[in-house]
């Protein structure tokens, strides 16, 4: 019979190994992509259009396309998401309807990304006749990141102490004045965190844009909301699987740019959250 101290040591060793099994591969993935992708990075790579059937040249249209699509999605998702969060944190009573809304948000967060793609195709591309366009893609991604924005914004709003609201009411402020002048300003860092996380998620997704906006090869910048656009994640998919004989350097380089974009936004969000917690006035 092992002593309980020994079995504890063994158990903790296994827990530590489990953690290593996650952390080490993740570290390796990032290191490999940086190591092999870095040589591809040059001014030309990020500022030129793809050449020789995407085997050379740069990825500029894909970067710009991703930025357009992501900004488009946030323009739709932020106002709706923020107002929905305000509803849940400030107006909703603890009743059946509220429970339904929360369940709907959970479901919206769980719908597979490719199903969003189907939905976007059916409603925006075909039903509303927007065609495969930045507008369709942005709207599709907007609905997909809505749960992220609602959940984080709601947490931020609810973290503002109730007593501040009470004080505001006791001076004769209306509910909206209280939200506008007391609750919202103090929740802004949290809302910003959620928005950036949403941006990061939208930038990295491929399946929802497959049939709604992404262009296989389009060596020019989109001119209007109704144009198709290249996008980084789809471009990486294309040059990895659809185009033969692409130099590995180009693939890694594209992966690096995409990874950098997404992780950078996440890091910014994490830093804002961290600073906010540290500086909290109450």
């Amino acid at each position: 019979m092992m002593s309980s101290r020994t079995s504890e040591k063994i158990a903790f060793l296994f827990l530590f190994l489990a953690t290593l099994l996650i952390v080490v591969p993740v570290g390796l993935i990032i290191v490999i992509i940086i190591q092999k992708g870095w040589p591809a990075i040059s001014w030309e790579f990020v500022s030129d259009i793809p050449r020789q059937g995407m085997r050379a040249g740069g990825i500029f249209p894909a970067i710009v396309g991703t930025i357009y699509i992501v900004l488009g999605s946030i323009i739709f998702a932020l106002p709706i998401g923020l107002l929905a969060a305000i509803y849940l944190s400030e107006y909703a009573k603890n009743n059946y309807l509220n429970r339904m809304i929360k369940l709907a948000i959970v479901n919206l967060a769980g719908v597979p990304s490719v199903v969003y793609g189907l939905f976007g195709l059916a409603i925006f591309v075909i039903f509303f006749k927007f065609g495969a366009s930045i507008l369709s893609g942005s709207l599709t991604l907007a609905i997909m990141i809505l749960p992220i924005i609602i959940t984080t914004s709601r947490e931020a709003l609810e973290s503002v102490p109730y007593s501040f609201r009470e004080v505001s009411y006791s001076i004769g402020a209306s509910k909206w004045q209280t939200i506008r002048h007391i609750v919202l300003p103090n929740a802004i860092p949290g809302i910003l965190t959620g928005t950036i996380l949403g941006l990061g998620r939208a930038a990295g997704e491929t399946a929802p844009i497959l049939f709604t906006v992404a262009a296989f090869y389009l060596p020019q910048l989109p001119k209007s909301l109704f144009d198709q656009a290249m996008a980084l994640p789809y471009h990486l998919y294309v040059i990895s699987t659809q185009v033969p004989n692409v130099d590995e350097k180009v693939r890694y380089g594209t992966a690096l740019v995409l990874l950098f974009l997404v992780l950078f936004m996440n890091l910014v969000a994490i830093i804002i959250r961290y600073q906010f917690r540290k500086k909290k006035k109450w």
């Binding site: 007593s163 501040f164 009470e166 004080v167 505001s168 006791s170 001076i171 004769g172 402020a173 004045q177 002048h181 007391i182 300003p185 103090n186 006035k281 109450w282």
Partner: peptide
Amino acid sequence: GMVFALPLPLPLSIFDNVAYGARIH
């Protein structure tokens, strides 16, 4: 008007705390 059990300044400057009500109205 009401003064609460604990001092509950709003997370604003001294001036804005006092001016809050007047601005609201």
